[in-house]
């Protein structure tokens, strides 16, 4: 049996949960096996019948389980796994899913493969996985020797598909929760003030790297962005480490992952750490004075030259076009 840990937000399954259920269904078909799921929350029972084609859904409903309560969720999942004895446990490879299944793995003293993108089957059983390394710039094929195999699915590795079939049976799972299961608890949620277009929403992102040389130089990127449709300014790790820009502007493995229609990389060398964060851009335009910079191997359009001359000239050209 393949057991899916389902993540919910605002009384709905998250997109990553649907991706994970899709991956579990496909894997179950290949293994001629069944799929079950675990749903935890203060009010989640009504979601269970929507998980069509699954054999059953175990539900734990408790008013204390509103939102993600790490240790309580881990205890429930670990007990469910011990009771149901699945061969594979799959969770979304999100912040919550990775945290949740890592805690489960620790409790059961089992290995955990995070960020999986592919599954390997041998003699009708799951043998190993492909998983992400270096934020996705390398892939690792690894064999998993322990059972059950605990896996999290890399977000967007599988496209979510609607589930078909009969409604699952719904069973309430009884787990006794103690005070210590609530020792890590969300105390409050401080909502962010929305200012301007965020990096993840922008259709165009103008990113600056080492070549900018100063915080001051980013002003021209701000001006360029202000002339473009739905544009925001981002930066590389070098720029944020030097305090030219705040860390919230960082595009990369340890910053934000963006997927705009166009990414304009200005004075960006193309370090792996940065490219992981912008590789999902539809088009990449690079401006760099070094024709051998790695960015040119990963861009669609290139301009070779001094950004400190090219960017002001480009701003003037766009203003001229807009004025005309």
């Amino acid at each position: 049996m393949i057991f899916v840990l389902v993540e919910t937000a605002n009384q709905k399954l998250t997109e990553s949960s649907w991706e994970t259920l899709t991956a579990a269904r496909d894997l179950a078909q290949k293994l001629s096996d069944t799929t079950e799921a675990l749903l935890i929350g203060s009010s989640v029972r009504a979601l269970a019948p929507t998980l069509k084609g699954l054999r059953s859904v175990s539900v734990v409903e408790d008013p204390r389980l509103a939102g993600y309560i790490p240790e309580a969720f881990a205890k429930i999942a670990a007990e469910a796994i011990q009771k149901k004895r699945p061969t594979v446990v799959l969770a979304p490879g999100t912040e919550m899913g990775n945290d949740w299944l890592a805690r489960v793995a620790a409790r059961l003293d089992l290995s955990l493969a995070t960020g999986c993108t592919e599954f390997f089957i041998e003699n009708g059983a799951l043998k190993g996985v492909t998983r992400t390394n270096w934020g996705g710039s390398l892939l690792e094929e690894t064999e998993i020797l322990s059972t059950p195999k605990l896996l999290t699915l890399q977000p967007h590795a599988v496209a979510a598909q609607p589930l078909a079939g009969a409604e699952p049976s719904v069973e309430a799972l009884a787990v006794t929760l103690e005070d210590r299961d609530f020792r890590v608890r969300l105390k409050e949620l401080v909502r962010k003030e929305k200012t301007g277009i965020s990096l993840t929403e922008a259709k165009v992102v103008v990113g600056g790297g080492r070549g900018l040389g100063s915080a001051e130089a980013f002003k021209m990127l701000e001006e360029l962005a202000s002339l473009l449709n739905n544009a925001a300014v981002g930066a590389t790790r070098v720029a944020t480490s030097n305090n030219w820009r705040p860390h919230s502007d960082q595009i990369g493995q340890t910053g934000t992952q963006i997927a705009p229609d166009l990414y304009i990389a200005v004075g960006v060398s193309g370090a792996i750490q940065h490219m992981v964060g912008c590789k999902n851009s539809k088009k990449i335009l690079a401006i760099n004075k070094d024709p051998d910079a790695p960015i040119f191997q990963r861009a669609d359009y290139g301009v070779i030259g001094d950004l400190h001359q090219i960017v002001p000239a480009l701003i003037a050209e766009i203003k001229r076009l807009k004025g005309a």
Binding site: L138, E140, E141, E143, I144, L145, S146
Partner: peptide, 8 residues
């Protein structure tokens, strides 16, 4: 419990 086979 895990054994890397290769990187790609």
């Amino acid at each position: 419990q895990m054994a890397r086979k290769l990187l790609k």
